[in-house]
Design a protein around this nucleic acid. Structure first.
Lengths: 341, 341
DNA sequence: TAATTTAGTGTAATCGATTACAAAAATTTT
DNA sequence: AAAATTTTTGTAATCGATTACACTAAATTA
């Protein structure tokens, strides 16, 4: 019940606690004989190092904090998994906090994490976050900060993201190759860079292929299924409805498909649809959904590696690393006209 | 950069650190004047309590550990979310570990959590866990342990589960009411109680409604889609194939549906299918899938509450609490013949 | 006014491990 | 055998906060 400490060992062996500590840490100054004796006794007594004492003394808690909007979103939970798996072998624990996309909660959580003396912070910023005072505080304290997926552009902060621009570009290019000429876009919250990038990738593809761009084809959506059904209704009422939709979210894409099927419009024959994120349901819908995989586990692992490099470096000026992962276009039936018709 | 401590405050105000500590903790023995002075100065100096020092002194880390097979499974991530949301207001942090359904990893993770001095452990045991020595060690140390979903029956351990038996019973009863007479079952890993319970609920419903029970109708599956397609192939080859399948997993149920559709067998007209877990994709498949919701967030919150009660109690004998939540049958198209045909 | 109570603060130990420095023991050199 | 090294171990401070106990000064009571 009562924890065994190095003092208990030292008393039992009639040596000082310092010697015990050194022996346990394989300090070369300790004679082989005592080292072995201490090791053996420690094992017998079921000694376990008190991590809290160690953390207090060393100033390192061997714990990192992760801040996400919601931890049960498949994308985020996979990133967290990636981080955990990469960091576990290095002896780090992972503390999770949810912001619920609320800027205030984000600030509060950052505070408690700093307070918990974490050795690093991974975060995907909330949709509502505008200023970055709380983030500055993290940097001031010299605690490594890594943005993943949703980042703010701040000097000195590393980030791991996917190339949203390119993911969007590939997606739209694919739609064009399927013969689509009037491609609409479901645009997410413009406050977030990722959606801005996807939008720009969409625009670039249109431009590169000399396709017309029309404001009417851009619909602002959130990431809910209903938002997609509403958006597609609006689009289909246009004098010239689109023949493809590039959605910045799988959920809105699904909403669109559901609504279209209800009204008898065929996917992909009449209209091609592609989503974004490779949510697990996209492989089970009918038709299966074309989407862009963000390789979340990889993103987590990469973030963890960036963190490890950062703490390894001399305490010198932390050099920011901007890692951009390549997304993967996954072509499925909702946009695939080849071999059909 | 350098952290402000109570000593810094005490020096600045020319009082003792003890007084500062007491003032900050609203100890009534401190005069209002000094208390306010200390508070003000602490705020000015951006003082923040060092949680590690506090944890070392008090023996409480204000951190709990959660052990799950995989943290990116929707069920588990939702439970974790529930725990986090319930515990956050009480000042607890949540450390997550993954066992990957590996007993060895489970043991190891328990060790590191104990080592990290967590104040409590929540766990869903791995599929491969047989003995419980590592769990006994947790109990010996007097650290509250709460099983959720997948538990072992151990004296003194609280658990929060859903009534799998009843969930299965309701599900099968529903299939019977749809007119099904030959109901098959996809049975999960019998090493886990949850699958045993579902199996028993299935049996009980058959017995209660005087339906025949046949070994041929019980197929052992894992939780993969392919396992479901294989299982249904086997079933349909029987001289008298079933007219309903109660699957212990949504994934195998989906596999079955996919295979049946491929062979032109209609769901639910020819065969009714129900799954288990209410995975998010079940609402988007075609037909939408009947399933049993395990109310994971609720399960997490309830587990957290059990934990909080446990640590509130006198250090007396910890009384185990066995909370059993009611699952919810969600009837969707894969089993709903009413208003059709 | 002297004795007693109360309020407010300080001293020092404690939680458990690490480590600079000092000291003792063992070994080598002269 | 004495001196100089080298090995090995011990002493005590430290990380930052809490708290039992002691003490002073003020307020109350006799």
């Amino acid at each position: 019940m009562n924890k065994v400490t190095i003092y208990d060992i030292s008393k039992k062996l009639n040596i000082s606690a310092a010697t015990v500590s050194r022996a346990l840490n394989n300090n070369p100054k300790i004679s082989l004989k005592t080292r072995e004796l201490v090791m053996k006794t420690a094992a017998e007594m079921n000694y376990e190092q008190n991590t809290l004492a160690l953390a207090l003394k060393s100033g390192k808690s061997n714990t990192v904090g992760i801040l996400v909007p919601y931890m049960d979103r498949s994308f985020f939970s996979s990133v967290i998994r990636g981080i955990e798996e990469e960091l576990y072998p290095h002896g780090y624990h992972v503390i999770i906090c949810q912001t619920r996309d609320d800027a205030k909660s984000e600030v509060q959580n950052i505070n408690t994490l700093l307070n918990a003396q974490v050795d690093g912070i991974f975060m995907s910023v909330s949709k509502t976050t505008k200023d970055t005072l709380h983030i500055d505080r993290v940097l001031q304290k010299g605690i490594p900060l890594i943005f993943f997926d949703r980042k703010k552009n701040l000097p000195g902060v590393s980030s791991v993201t996917i190339d949203d621009f390119n993911g969007a570009y590939m997606s739209v290019e694919h739609l064009i190759r399927q013969g689509c000429k009037r491609i609409a876009h479901f645009m997410g919250n413009i406050n977030l860079e990722i959606y801005k990038d996807r939008y720009n990738g969409y625009l670039k593809a249109l431009t590169d292929y000399n396709l017309p761009y029309s404001k009417d084809y851009i619909v602002q959506t959130n990431s809910k299924v209903e938002s997609g059904t509403a958006a597609v209704k609006k689009l289909m009422k246009l004098p010239e409805p689109p023949d493809a939709i590039f959605s910045s979210s799988d959920f809105t894409a699904l909403g669109a498909v559901q609504e279209l099927k209800k009204t008898g419009i065929r996917v992909p024959e009449d209209i091609c649809i592609s989503g974004f994120s490779n949510e697990s349901f996209t492989q089970y819908t009918e038709p299966t959904m074309t989407t862009v995989d963000q390789t979340p586990i990889k993103m987590g692992k990469m973030s963890a590696r960036v963190f490890l490099e950062q703490i390894d470096e001399e305490i010198s000026v932390a050099i920011e690393k901007k890692v951009v992962l390549s997304p993967q276009l996954i072509i499925r039936d909702s946009s695939n006209r080849t071999g059909r018709e």
